[in-house]
Design a protein around this nucleic acid. Structure first.
Length: 548
DNA sequence: GCCGTTTTCGGCCCGACTGTTTTCAGTCG
């Protein structure tokens, strides 16, 4: 644990996460545990550094931060730990707490595995599962063991890759510090973060410096840095607080263009570029960073057919958002004001439908009251507010509201949140049935994946694209960094087929509107232009499509 | 542990799914 006074929100959150995990295994009060987990969630989504909030004496303003959690935040910021954690940390081994991150393993099972079989790590759990020892436990059958083995495999596959939503802000904080070094004339994020990949293994940065040695020295001494892995005359690799690795590559100013050229594209891109002798450096400069993946961009540059990719400035509306009526954090009015502040011409309120109890989904009566509320508010706010709903797709593909209610809404978003373990054929039919409902305008987060946590469900994407095209139904690029769904690959396929694509943040708070840029990154990686992304259209044209 | 004009205690998101259980516990969203 770092002793410095500049702990990140993520580091503070990790202490609370460990506390919650230990308490959970010890069977403490579930609500107490939830209070800590809520604090973790809050810290991970807080729009400013918790150290700054604490320094300004504003911890009390954070919802869910009461007396006890505030005191612990202060402890952790000052000392890297807190008395409660020091008292309980040795009661449960770290490896046992880590087992909680295996999907399908809850606190009760972990405790049983630990106390019953003396298993104290995921590796030991895997061996016990393979040898059949695990089935000695009561309630532990062959199917459960197989599920655990699959979960361990998936956990291994996911770990080590950081989501772009975590990596990009960290890269930006490093680059702005580096740009302030007197010897540095220019510095940029490069590598997979610059290309906007959905997950990255590390952060790569490049700087032009009159004194490379001084620039590297400054880099390794930044407060974000926890330790130095390696260093030579032209580069340094460090580990950041939180465990991510970051590399800085340095060149003299007159050699910097060449360095950037080498460090932005993927390995496949660099290889293809070297093989193409007729392509000039000037021509390659026109290739947008995000598509330097050897996916046809070099050929397009040569042919003069590079796309003009969609930008954040092209977006005119964000039409997927939640309020306190379901699981959002603020009111209709606050969301509308925030959307207007983002320069949008239109937005939509799309709270969850009745079946999603966990998110306090709206009943038909509550939704009708909300429609009236929006109509009464809209004129005073200076932004077009579409009435809408994020309606659950039921197991058989039917919508969670009757058609007469759906017809009363400006926009209907269909989402598969539940019943997603059906076989490929059934799942595909179900999504297509939703697409074919004439009231449905958009399919949200089509694959249902949660990056690093849940695989996409099994469905026939080709058939979904064909159905969307046939019915003029849009498909979403959900910009939430844990979703980014459609993926870049699916979005490119859908865009090339001519399907309307909307990029939405699925905002549950005002701050969430800022996540739009991650959705735009996905769209750019998918070669999408403003023509493909329909929420770049002016209000009249967008509205005409909704009422088609 | 947090929260609150039904405030200083008693609630706190609640139903579905899965596998194993013989009537339900654990996990998840």
């Amino acid at each position: 644990m770092s002793e410095s006074g500049t702990l990140t929100n993520g580091e503070v959150a990790r202490v609370f996460e460990r506390i919650a995990g230990i308490m959970e295994i010890q069977g403490e009060n579930a609500f107490k545990i939830r209070a800590y987990r809520n604090a973790v969630e809050t810290l991970n989504t807080l729009p400013e550094p918790i150290a700054q909030v604490a320094a300004a004496g504003r911890l009390d303003d954070i919802p869910g931060f009461g007396e006890a959690i505030q005191a612990k935040v202060k402890d952790i910021l000052a000392t890297g730990t807190t008395a409660l954690y020091e008292r309980i940390k040795d009661k449960v081994p770290d490896g046992v707490v880590e087992m909680l991150s295996i999907p399908g393993l809850g606190a009760k099972t972990v405790r049983q595995v630990w106390e019953g079989l003396k298993i104290e790590s995921i590796a030991a759990l895997e061996i016990a599962a393979q040898s059949g020892k695990l089935t000695e436990l009561p309630g532990m059958g062959e199917k459960t063991v197989q599920k655990i083995l699959q979960s361990i495999e998936r956990y291994r596959r996911y770990s080590g890759r950081i989501r772009i939503g975590d990596a990009l802000p960290l890269a930006e904080s490093l680059i702005s510090a580096i740009q302030n070094f007197p010897v540095v004339s220019e510095a940029h994020i490069v590598g997979s973060v610059a290309r906007g990949r959905e997950t990255v293994a590390n952060i790569n940065l490049a700087a032009a410096a009159t004194s490379p040695a001084e620039a590297l020295q400054g880099f390794t001494q930044l407060p974000q840095v926890s330790s130095i892995v390696s260093q030579d005359e032209r580069s340094a690799r460090v580990v950041l607080h939180g465990g991510m690795e970051a590399d800085l590559f340095v060149a003299a100013p007159d050699e910097f263009a060449e360095l950037l050229d080498e460090r932005i594209g993927s390995a496949a891109y660099n290889e293809a570029r070297r093989a193409q002798t007729e392509v000039s450096a000037d021509l390659l400069k026109q290739v947008p960073m995000e598509i330097r993946e050897n996916g046809g961009e070099i050929e397009a540059a040569l042919a003069g057919t590079l796309p003009t990719l969609v930008t954040l400035a092209d977006i005119r509306g964000d039409v997927h958002a939640h309020t306190t009526a379901s699981d959002g954090k603020v009111t209709i009015q606050q969301m509308a004001v925030a959307a207007k502040a983002h320069g949008y011409e239109y937005m939509a309120i799309t709270d969850h439908s009745q079946s999603l109890y966990i998110a306090n989904g709206l009943t038909p009566d509550r939704l009708r009251a909300q429609i009236a509320e929006i109509r009464a508010l809209e004129d005073s706010l200076g932004i077009r507010i579409f009435t809408g709903s994020e309606v659950d797709i039921k197991a058989d593909g039917a919508m969670d509201f009757d058609d007469d209610l759906l017809q009363e809404l400006d926009i209907v978003i269909a989402s598969a949140h539940m019943h997603n373990n059906q076989d490929k054929d059934a799942q595909t039919k179900r999504i297509i049935k939703a697409i074919e409902n004439p009231n449905v305008d958009l399919i949200a987060h089509p694959s249902g994946r949660i990056i690093n946590r849940r695989d996409p469900f099994d469905f026939d994407f080709d058939a979904v694209v064909a159905a969307a095209l046939r019915t003029d139904t849009a498909l979403e690029i959900n910009a939430a960094p844990e979703r980014l769904d459609m993926s870049d690959v699916h979005a490119r396929q859908a865009g090339a087929a001519g399907v309307k694509i909307l990029i939405n943040t699925d905002a549950h708070s005002i701050e969430n509107y800022d996540l739009m840029r991650y959705g735009v990154l996905v769209a750019r990686r998918a070669w999408l232009t403003p023509h493909n992304v329909f929420n770049t259209r002016p209000l009249a044209e967008f509205e005409a499509w909704l009422h088609r």
